[in-house]
Design a binder for these strands. Sequence first.
DNA 1: TATGAATGAGAATTCATTCAT
DNA 2: TATGAATGAATTCTCATTCAT
Lengths: 202, 202, 202, 202
Amino acid sequence: MPKIVDHDAYRNELLQKYFDDFAHRGYSDVTMREIAESLGVSTGTLYHYFPTKKSILENMLQLASRRDISGAIASIKEDTPLEDRIRAFSNYIMEKEQWFADIVMLTIDYYRQQNKEGGFEMVKEADSYYGNGVAEATGLSAELGFFFTIFFNGLVFHRLAFPDSISFHDQAELFIKVFMTYLRAEGMEKNLKNEGVDSGKK
Amino acid sequence: MPKIVDHDAYRNELLQKYFDDFAHRGYSDVTMREIAESLGVSTGTLYHYFPTKKSILENMLQLASRRDISGAIASIKEDTPLEDRIRAFSNYIMEKEQWFADIVMLTIDYYRQQNKEGGFEMVKEADSYYGNGVAEATGLSAELGFFFTIFFNGLVFHRLAFPDSISFHDQAELFIKVFMTYLRAEGMEKNLKNEGVDSGKK
Amino acid sequence: MPKIVDHDAYRNELLQKYFDDFAHRGYSDVTMREIAESLGVSTGTLYHYFPTKKSILENMLQLASRRDISGAIASIKEDTPLEDRIRAFSNYIMEKEQWFADIVMLTIDYYRQQNKEGGFEMVKEADSYYGNGVAEATGLSAELGFFFTIFFNGLVFHRLAFPDSISFHDQAELFIKVFMTYLRAEGMEKNLKNEGVDSGKK
Amino acid sequence: MPKIVDHDAYRNELLQKYFDDFAHRGYSDVTMREIAESLGVSTGTLYHYFPTKKSILENMLQLASRRDISGAIASIKEDTPLEDRIRAFSNYIMEKEQWFADIVMLTIDYYRQQNKEGGFEMVKEADSYYGNGVAEATGLSAELGFFFTIFFNGLVFHRLAFPDSISFHDQAELFIKVFMTYLRAEGMEKNLKNEGVDSGKK
DNA sequence: TATGAATGAGAATTCATTCAT
DNA sequence: TATGAATGAATTCTCATTCAT
């Protein structure tokens, strides 16, 4: 019998190990040799787990979007007011800002590969992470869930491009203030999927 | 003297012609030969105008950020209420969505090159486009100008990655509603740099 | 003891199963993994039976040349006139044309490997199949045996390269006509090794 | 203006220079790097003239089949008896035996590539060299032209595989004897396209 | 015996750049 | 200025072979 290896587990391990470098350097600027070396395996072994370079990007994004949702949701405690939930999300993103920036960059790489001849389909399931996941975890409507996601993706992107330009914390707090003002003005009920959450505020 | 004018004008013409392909395919996936062919010149000629591939990216982003600001500002009429100004900006971005998506993508490429050994400095002036330009054109504070910019960059990015996910118009209108609600609640004065613009309320 | 019988029998089975693919694709274009997969064994097992890829080619040709001769000779009935014997050979080759084409191709591969550093010796015994075997089975002189063989190898080769060019049957019949005309003209006796076979033609 | 090079002439020069090695080592066993080195150019330059490795094989065979016919025909003098013409052909092949062996081997390579996915069409025009060209140059019928060609291809192949087995000269003379016997017996007229050639003997 | 994970040298091909014309 | 032939290091991917289990 051959060496016993949990193929899938090892694949994920490799993906996570190289996630950061891959995103920062960019799909096209990273070489299979470098990836292999960095992971401490031979190129042959790398190809044993990933048939093509593309498949690494594909699997990375898939893995990321899954961990993404679960991680964010886990950071939210039950039975807390809406503002706290939103702030919890915001803090979660701030803490993992680099990681979210990685996802933004890999998404661009993915988009570009997708448009190539022989490219692959966009990972539809990643879309749920953008918006629906947020909505679910906060109790907001899907539209507002996307609103939230869009802003924070924009924030992550902006700070990636211009690190010295703005403060994450300040813009995030501004967002929360603006957002909460709107929700209160409009009346919470309309914007919440689940009645009773954070209501009754005079 | 006329030579120099021609030279620069021709450079810009080349940059604009290939801008879209460059952004969509990505810095690393576009070859100098392809650029040359697409522009109808030889590689030798291309190198005559741009000493390296990097310099094309550099000049492209520079050109983009300049046209960006001027175009947006030009679309705003004087003496209009704040909401109209904001909507004018939003509409401008919607109409040129593809162009803004290109800038987002090229910015990522630029960021990545910047981090490389021998990479170049980030174009500082591009930052003004993000935020300060908006603030200036609308009369908002710099902080709110960035707030605006961040959201719309997020929106452009999101729709780039997930074209079928959300509507530009709907999310933009939602933003305007949220934003205006906040401005009205907080009192316009605090958020405007220039008194007297869009005032007279009450 | 029974192990060894199994071992060799299994080896031959593997060789025969993959003979055709090997010849058609070519020694260098076939991979050990493909061979293994096609045979339903692991690469490890394949290496258990054949220490190197070269050894597969070697054993294949050896096996082929043996079966070749025996098969052809078996197809010839005793005490038949020379023309019938020759035609029997011709028919045998026509029926197994693909098989003979395989041998032609593998022989080229073999020749090329032989010329390499570390290459192997030509299987001398295969030569007997070309010519001597035919001579023996038909009662012709060695020289005419080779003459026969040469023509039919040429025919197989030509049809391999240009399948739509000529008919096997027509050219074979032409050969027999030409050949028999010559034998009759020259006098059979001179061209036959064994007197008495197909004689009495006073 | 760029360096002035006669593209096609240089291509042919490269093809002829490497013809022999290519055939002997085999399509799959020769590397582009080796070809380039052997030709004294860089791999980049090699690719400048041949977009793929396949295209080298393709062009080589095409070039060969053309030179083949013209060379053979040129060696035949006008107004000579048929037997002399045939012998002239035979001598021509004997002198260039190595070269014909090369073509046989390359043809096999070609056939194998042709059968691959993405393979190319067989060079139809090469078929004319086999048979029709001979017929034309000797005045024989097409069928007998192919008969001739088939035998000599077989002879070349056989001597390639088993160099010590038979003599080219002996088998060639045997062929001529057999062939001429048949032609005389059948009556020349039937086998000649052009009346009057080499007839009326005795 | 049998398996298939692991290896790493080497394959075909690409590409930014140079430079003779 | 303009051309495109030439370069060669670097890229993705392959594959015969080994070996721990």
